[in-house]
Structures are given as C-alpha cells and as structure tokens.
Simulated assay, not measured.
Amino acid sequence: MTMLNRFSPSALPQTALKNPEIRLLDHLVKDRGGDRSRRGTLSHHIVKVARLGGYLARAADPPPGNTVIWRGLSRLTDIDLVYGYAVSLLQERSPGANSFHCSRHQEI
C-alpha cells in the first residue's frame, strides 16, 4: 500500500481500499484544511489510515511509512470488527435501527 501510494498518489482510493472502509475512514478521521482537490485520491486516504496509526501529518513530515500504515490498518480492522458486533447486537434488539454499512456486514 505504501509503494502504491508513492507510485500513483492520485489514483482512486478503491485501488487499495474497499468502499465501506473508505466511508468508515471518512467518518473516523476528519479532513484537515489542506488541498480539497486531493480528497478523492488514494494518497489522501492512505494519510487517513496512517493517522489512525499515529502519523501526525505535519507539513514537514515525510510520507507515511510501512509501520504506521500497518498500525492504522490494524486499528481500522479492529474498529470494523467491533462495529459489526455492535450492529449485530442492535439488530437483535431493534431491527432497522442503523443504516451505516461496513465492509464485513450487511446494510441494516
């Protein structure tokens, strides 16, 4: 993922992430000011993954590396799993209570 980001930063985020993961990232990691034209790119979403892993994304910082992206992906997976568990509990109690769709779970 790191090399793909460095080779083709303006690619679509679907190159490396699934649509539900992109929506979850957009919900969890708020956009900073910056360049609005980059918001739909792979580079923008890789930085969001890296920010979950502890990357600070300051102006003078180098691009995120493998370790911080791995940490971010690990955290994103954990959040996705917990979300899926919570949705299944809510679904048992009150069907139709939530309409957010996540990568491993059916839309409710």
Rank of each mutant, 00 (worst) to 15 (best):
S88L: 10
L28G: 02
L42D: 00
P9D: 02
A50K: 03
T2I: 12
H44A: 03
G40V: 06
A86S: 07
I79S: 02
L4G: 07
T15R: 15
R58C: 06
L42A: 02
D31R: 09
V82P: 01
D35S: 11
L81D: 11
V29Y: 00
G84I: 00
G34K: 01
S74N: 05
L28K: 04
I69M: 10
I79T: 05
A50C: 08
D61T: 02
K30S: 08
E21V: 00
F100T: 14
P13L: 04
K18R: 13
R58A: 10
G84K: 00
D61Y: 01
F100A: 14
Y83W: 09
E107Y: 03
L56C: 05
L24K: 02
M3P: 07
S99N: 15
V47R: 10
Q106Y: 07
N19L: 15
P64H: 03
N98H: 10
V49R: 00
Q91K: 14
D26S: 07
G65I: 03
I46D: 03
L52G: 00
R23N: 12
P9W: 01
R75C: 05
D80Y: 06
H45Y: 13
L76G: 02
D35I: 10
V68S: 08
N66T: 09
S88E: 15
Q91A: 15
L12W: 07
K30V: 08
L4D: 11
Q14A: 14
T77S: 13
Y85F: 11
L12F: 08
L24C: 07
L28P: 01
H45D: 03
S74V: 01
R93Q: 13
G96A: 02
L28D: 01
G33T: 09
E21H: 10
A57Y: 00
N5L: 09
L73I: 04
R51T: 06
P20A: 09
D78I: 04
L56P: 02
Y83I: 13
A59M: 04
S99L: 13
A97G: 05
S88V: 05
D31A: 14
F7T: 09
D31Y: 06
V82E: 13
L76N: 01
V47T: 11
M1R: 07
M1F: 08
